[in-house]
Design a protein around this nucleic acid. Structure first.
Length: 113
RNA sequence: GAAGUAAAUUGAAUAGUCGCGUAUGGCAAAACCGAAAGGUUGCGUAUGAGGAAAGUCCGGGCUCCAUAAGAGCAAUGAUGCUGGAUAACAUCCAGUGAAGGUAACUUCAAGGAAAGUGCAACAGAAAAUAACCGCCUUUUUAGGUAAGGGUGAAAAGGUAAGGUAAGAGCUUACCGCAGAUAUGGUGACAUAUCUGGUCAGUGUAAACCCCAUCUGGAGCAACACCUCGUAAUUCCAAGAAGGUUAAGAUGCUCUUUCGUCUUCUUGGUUUUGGUGGCUUAAGCCUUAUAGUAAUAUAAGGAAUAGAUAAAUGACUAUUCAUGACAGAACCCGGCUUAUAGAUUUACUUUAUUU
C-alpha cells in the first residue's frame, strides 16, 4: 500500500485548475486531469477568506481522510484538486457529508470502480 | 450566606481499530524516483500545537546591505512624574500626584501654555486690552461699576463681614493660588512659617512647537552551500600591471582607513531542484541567601514539535457534559486583543449567630 501522494508545486496546481475537467458537488468542487504515471496525486486548496486556520485545517483533514478510505478503489493516473465551495457554510463540513459528496463525484467522473 | 476586589492554576478524560509528521538507524533487505545533488519505502521504538501558537504593536538575538572607526551638524521617528530592575523596551517593581469607589482597590500620553505661532464651531453682550441688560451718579449728556442675568467645554479666584452713590481684593478673616525660607526624603514631593491683592494674561501641546533622553536600513521568502543549464557578455569578487586625486564608501561636513579609472588572467552570478539555517534559549521550575518588590547570586531539577500545498485526524464505546477562543512556521522578552466552564488563595462591604 503506497502513501497518498500530494501535489506540491504551485504550477502543478495551476495546470490542474486551468486544464483539468471540472465537477461540482454539493460541498466540494473537484478538478481532474490525467497524468501519465501509475499513481494518483491529490491537492487540497481552501481559500484564506473562507475560514480561519483551525477550520481550514479541519476541512483539509476531513477531505484527506475520506480520500484515504476511498483510495484503494480508484483507478490510477489522475491529478485531483479539491476545493471547498465558497457559498457553503463551514458548519456542513462533517465527515459523513464529505463522504457522500466525494463518493458521488467520483462515480460521475467514472474513476471509482 | 450575599455582593464584590486582587492574584494564581486549568483549558474534557479513558480504552480500542485505522491513518499522518519528525527523530533513531534497533531489525530486515533490496528496490524505487531523479539529469544531478539528493530523496523515498517495511517493521519496531520514542515523540508530536497554545495560553494566547493570534494581532504584528514594541524591545533584542541572528543574517545581509563591498566595508569600517571617530567627531560635529541636521533630518526622521519614539519616549516623557520619581527611584530602581533588565540584554533591551513603550515592559516590570516600589513610590509621588490627580481622578473614581462606603471599602478591598482601580484608572492615568502625569515635562513646558509669561519662547513663539495657530485654533476655540454654535450659542453668548463679551472667548481675553470684556459694559448688552442691570445697578449708581449726573441731569440728558457723559461717567462709574464685574455684585446679578442667560449662553457655553471654558466667563476673569471662592465664602463671609466691613465698605460704597452703586460696586469691586477696595479692606479684613478663612480657604485656594504664586514665591521664598526651613525641616523630612536619593528623588517625585510632603509639612510648617513668612511674603504677595499688579493673584494682568481661559482652554488646547493624542495642534505646530520648545526642552531632555534615545534612534542606520531591510528581513529566515534573511542568508549560506550543492546540483543542472551556458544565451547575452551584463554584473560581482580576487590577483597582476599601468595611470591618477576628478568621483565614491552616511543626508551633510571633517579626520583616518579603504578605494576609484584602463588592460589582462582566474573564479562566480540569473534558471531548475535540493540541503542547511531549524531549535537549549539573556529560557523554565524548586530551594537558600540579599532585597518591601521587580530581580540578582548559588545549588539542584525537568528538559525531547520543527513542517514547507505545510504533520494531531476518522470511527466506536463510556463518563462529566454538549468542550469557549483558537493551529507552531527563525528564536527570545513583553504588550494588546479573543476566551465556555472549573478550581485555589488573600482581602473588602453587608446580614445573621456567638
Amino acid at each position: 500500500m503506497n502513501k497518498t501522494l500530494k501535489l506540491k508545486k504551485n504550477y502543478e496546481f495551476k495546470i490542474v485548475l486551468t486544464k483539468g475537467k471540472y465537477y461540482s458537488g454539493k460541498y466540494l468542487d473537484v478538478f481532474v486531469k490525467t497524468n501519465n504515471s501509475s499513481f494518483n496525486f491529490i491537492g487540497i486548496a481552501i481559500g484564506v477568506k473562507i475560514a480561519k486556520a483551525v477550520k481550514r485545517n479541519r476541512i483539509k483533514r476531513l477531505v484527506r481522510e475520506n480520500y484515504r478510505l476511498l483510495e484503494k478503489d480508484l483507478k490510477v493516473g489522475y491529478n485531483i484538486v479539491f476545493l471547498w465551495k465558497k457559498k457553503v457554510d463551514i458548519k456542513n463540513a462533517t465527515f459523513s457529508n464529505i463522504k457522500e459528496d466525494m463518493t458521488s463525484i467520483f462515480k460521475r467522473i467514472g474513476i471509482l470502480e
